[in-house]
Amino acid sequence: MPRGSNAKRERQYEHIKDSAKDRGESEERAEEIAARTVNKERARSGESRTASRTSTKDMSSSRRGGLRSHSGSGGPTRDQLYNEARQRGVKGRSNMTKAQLAKALGR
Rank of each mutant, 00 (worst) to 15 (best):
T37Y: 07
R88G: 00
M96S: 03
S94A: 05
S62I: 10
K98S: 02
S61P: 11
Q80F: 05
Q100E: 03
M96V: 03
T97G: 05
N95W: 10
R93P: 00
E41R: 05
S52D: 15
R88L: 00
T37P: 01
T37A: 13
G72D: 15
G74I: 03
R42W: 03
P76S: 04
S60V: 02
Q80I: 02
G92K: 02
G92Y: 01
S61H: 11
G65D: 11
E84R: 14
L105E: 06
Q100S: 00
R64E: 15
T56K: 13
M96N: 04
R68C: 06
K40A: 10
R44I: 09
R64Y: 11
H70D: 15
S52W: 11
A104W: 04
R53H: 07
G66W: 03
R93I: 00
A99R: 05
S45K: 04
R64T: 10
V38E: 01
G74A: 06
K91N: 12
K98D: 01
M59F: 03
G66F: 06
A43K: 02
K98V: 04
M59E: 14
S61Q: 07
A34Q: 00
A35K: 06
K40V: 04
Q100A: 00
R36Q: 10
G72R: 15
S62N: 07
K40H: 06
K57L: 11
G65R: 12
A99N: 07
L67Q: 14
S61E: 14
R93Y: 00
K40N: 08
G66T: 07
G74F: 00
Q100D: 00
L105H: 03
A85L: 05
R78T: 12
R68K: 08
G75K: 00
H70L: 12
S94R: 07
K103Q: 13
D79L: 09
Y82F: 14
T37Q: 06
S61M: 10
N95C: 08
K98F: 01
Q80C: 04
Q100Y: 00
T37H: 12
Q80D: 09
A51H: 04
S55A: 15
G92Q: 01
R68T: 10
H70T: 11
E84T: 14
Q87C: 04
S62C: 09
A35L: 03
A104M: 10
G75E: 02
L81M: 07
A43N: 04
E41D: 13
T50M: 13
T77P: 02
K40Q: 08
H70K: 15
T37G: 06
A102T: 03
R53Y: 08
E41N: 09
M59S: 13
S45H: 05
G74L: 04
D79E: 14
P76D: 06
V38Q: 01
D58S: 15
M96A: 05
K57T: 14
A35S: 12
G46S: 06
V90A: 03
R78F: 10
R64L: 13
I33R: 06
A43M: 04
G89A: 06
S71R: 15
L81G: 00
N83F: 08
